[in-house]
């Protein structure tokens, strides 16, 4: 007997999510088609889709006549045309927070890595060196970590930071006082956050307001023993200002997981600096986060299958009749 729903999967997805809806769903991977375009040409036969980065524009969605739910694997949905989805009464939902623990741990890993020079020390040992004094580090205990923003990933970072002996400050104009843990102190100004912190980590989305919001003034305030960590979005930081601050010794170092242009490219001036630790947008890239995103996206599909709106529905005002489809 054929299953009741056809579900389209992204090329890479942790198997635990699809396995959890196998009782009602017949799942097909995009990679089972010759190309992504071929899969999208066939979108008319699917009731649901778990989606990562595939572009769903109006042309594609106009053909998605059976589609009831687009379950984003992750948070950002800028690859979906909301108006076209609304015309088909398709519910759009996501999995916010599923990678928060992974991002928080990456922040602490980068901070420890920069403070203890682990990447350059590793390179030095492999090259036959043993100049220990060059790699003198700095303890985290007793330092203050400033968090710019206080959403899911900042919250996870704060818990880890306090666990390792750091004090935590935040500049988060949109968070209410009673949403902050008792031992996280608030400051009212971004530059003041940098002034009062030994390290600052960015946890804000990229918006007009946050674009280049970390620049020369903030880095000057962070100071010559300060470290900047960015796992949010590259353009939250004025990259040229970081390079200047590092060159001038205005700050001590940086741990960067996101960049203005990704891939960064070998010719980028950051690539020759020992005082930066660079990773290719790996904050949320762990086995555990991949499993959680897969499971939550699948659970959202089940919710819609059972006639409900997922808690993380992003277009509920557009979907008043979506459930009757």
């Amino acid at each position: 007997m054929s299953k009741e729903w056809n579900v389209l999967l992204p090329p890479v997805v942790h198997p635990s999510g699809p396995a959890a809806i196998a009782d009602f769903a017949n799942c097909t991977g995009i990679d089972e088609y010759d190309s992504t375009a071929d899969a999208l040409d066939d979108i008319g036969r699917y009731d649901a889709m778990i989606l990562r980065v595939t572009e769903l524009d109006a042309t594609v969605l106009d053909g998605a006549t059976r589609m009831k739910v687009l379950a984003k694997h992750g948070t950002g949905t800028d690859n979906i045309d909301y108006a076209a989805a609304a015309r088909q009464n398709i519910i759009i939902c996501n999995t916010p927070g599923a990678n928060a623990q992974s991002v928080g741990e990456h922040v602490i890993g980068l901070l420890l890595g920069v403070r203890r020079h682990i990447h350059t020390a590793d390179k030095h040992v492999r090259a036959g060196g043993w100049d220990r004094a060059t790699y003198t580090g700095r303890e985290l205990t007793g330092d203050t970590l400033g968090l710019y923003g206080f959403g899911f990933t900042a919250r996870a970072t704060a818990t880890l930071a306090r666990g390792i002996g750091l004090s935590v400050l935040t500049y988060a104009p949109r968070s209410t006082d009673d949403s902050l843990p008792d031992d996280v102190q608030r400051v009212d100004d971004l530059t003041a956050l940098f002034e009062k912190s030994d390290a600052v980590s960015a946890h804000v989305p990229l918006t007009d307001e946050t674009h280049y919001s970390i620049s020369t003034e903030q880095l000057d305030a962070l100071g010559e023993t300060g470290v900047l960590i960015n796992t949010s979005r590259g353009d939250v930081v004025d990259e040229q200002a970081i390079i200047s601050a590092l060159e001038n010794g205005t700050i001590a170092g940086a741990g960067l997981d996101t960049f203005s242009q990704e891939p960064l490219g070998a010719d980028h001036p950051l690539c020759t600096r020992d005082d930066v630790l660079l990773t290719p947008h790996l904050g949320g890239a762990t086995e555990q986060a991949m499993a959680r995103m897969s499971q939550r996206a699948a659970a959202n599909i089940r919710t819609v299958y059972e006639g409900q709106l997922p808690d993380t529905t992003l277009n509920s005002s557009d979907c008043t009749i979506g459930l009757q489809k």
Binding site: E105, H119, L264, L277, L278, P280
Partner: peptide, 22 residues
């Protein structure tokens, strides 16, 4: 962290090769 840093400096961006563990 050490191999991902080396990878980025060499111009690479193969994120799937560096999936980590919490």
């Amino acid at each position: 962290l050490h191999t991902a840093d080396r990878h980025v400096r060499n111009g690479g961006w193969d994120r799937a090769a560096f999936v980590g563990r919490e």
